[in-house]
Design a protein around this nucleic acid. Structure first.
Lengths: 226, 226
DNA sequence: CGGACTTTGTTCCTGCGTTCACAAGCGGTT
DNA sequence: AACCGCTTGTGAACGCAGGAACAAAGTCCG
């Protein structure tokens, strides 16, 4: 494995990475449908983005299309999967088996994208032993042990807000370097640890704000109430 | 209600609106703890953002702090709530009562932020009649009726991917103008309708990508494998 | 075999978001 | 009453993402 195998694109913007994951999902659907090639326009439409932006995103991986024809679906799919690191299955732990945690653990879409939950943890003894998505729930005291056993580096936090920070601290101490946090608090982590905050009520509030603004049309200096 | 009541800030960037919702949540916690005032530094730390950025965000609402002192917690909370439109309760419908839909419908955090689910809809007759979060599940055929009854303009879609687009079309035809979509497809909507896409597996894949890049340190021209 | 059409890859440019840094203003203190 | 320190609010610069337009390249057809 020479380090000069990839001749381009040292750094890929985070916004582009997120879109690449979407492209990969669309391509998987096209491959299942038996499609051999796609144009940037069709792919962009299915992904909900601008065609030129899609081509720029893909160009970070180096040239991977054929001019005048389009992109070969299986080859592009393979290339995206390698770039995103989907080829190797990644072990994750999920802490907090409430409604949301159970929904995530039972979602089959993660397994097909290279993620496997090797540990489902909860503090409630009544939930320990339940089997969700083929994995048994273990007590949260096993956190460090599970992380060490499987070399876990990615964790999903779906605990109540008051305990999210302490769970996060334990995860980081155990060696986890990447966390998706659904609890509505901003986690404090040392440098080198990535946190992605997913806040469901914030999404709704942004929509409500845009919705309320839509109701008020400003024409010149005059406010028109429809 | 004169239109010159608010002397500033005609347009608020969407990124700022999302952060304002976070500030509002932090402020509510501080108010419950009995705090009377906060500095931008403390508030920014709790929200996980830059202090200067926080002050700029708040400045879109006009001056609302006291120099040398900080921000009055109750007053700022009230101001944010008004700006985000939390004062008036907003009626929403939720389509797709699977694991994720049930988790969202049962989440008490929405109710305290001005949202009430007036309709929970599902296509599965076995789920119809279940009571989640105090509301009974109704058949998806009632969609148009529920939207019209309550004047709903906001909808949450948690259906399986194959039916998300058709559900979306029905929602838009019924008058819904804002949609949060959890199904892993890009919804096609006419102009004037806002869609916020929440893709849980994309979040994980972005983390996995950053995680895999963290494993490779590039020093000068040399690649160092730890 | 050559030309024209189609589609990619790239470059430029515009606009937005974020960050830094400084001036303005208020409370506390002497 | 005046000074000093602290915090807000704002102005400017930087960097980045997004979009449009153009050039390169390959295929299909005459």
């Amino acid at each position: 494995m020479s380090e000069s195998r990839e001749p381009r694109a040292r750094v890929i913007p985070e916004a582009t990475v997120a879109r690449l994951a979407v492209y990969l999902r669309v391509l998987t659907g096209l491959a299942d449908a038996g499609r051999a090639s796609v144009s940037s326009g069709e792919l962009a439409s299915a992904a909900g983005v601008n065609p030129a932006g899609l081509r720029k995103d893909l160009s970070y991986l180096g040239p991977c299309g054929v001019r005048g024809v389009g992109y070969a679906v299986p080859a592009l799919r393979e290339r995206l999967a390698r770039a995103l690191g989907v080829e190797q299955s990644r072990s994750c732990v999920l802490v907090g088996m409430g409604n949301l945690g159970s929904a995530l653990a039972g979602y089959a879409g993660f397994g097909t994208r290279g993620f496997s939950f090797v540990g489902l943890l909860d503090a409630d003894p009544a939930r320990v032993g339940d089997v969700v998505g083929g994995t048994a729930v273990r007590p949260v005291d096993d956190l460090e042990q599970v992380v060490a056993e499987h070399g876990v580096t990615i964790a999903v936090v779906t605990t109540p807000a008051p305990v999210a920070q302490s769970v996060c601290d334990r995860l980081v101490d155990a060696g986890v370097r990447s966390i998706v946090n659904f609890a509505p608090v901003a986690l404090q982590v040392p440098a080198g640890v990535d946190v992605r905050q997913v806040d469901l009520s914030v999404e709704l509030q942004v929509l409500a704000f845009l919705d309320q603004q839509k109701g008020v049309q400003v024409v010149g200096e005059q406010v028109v109430l429809p």
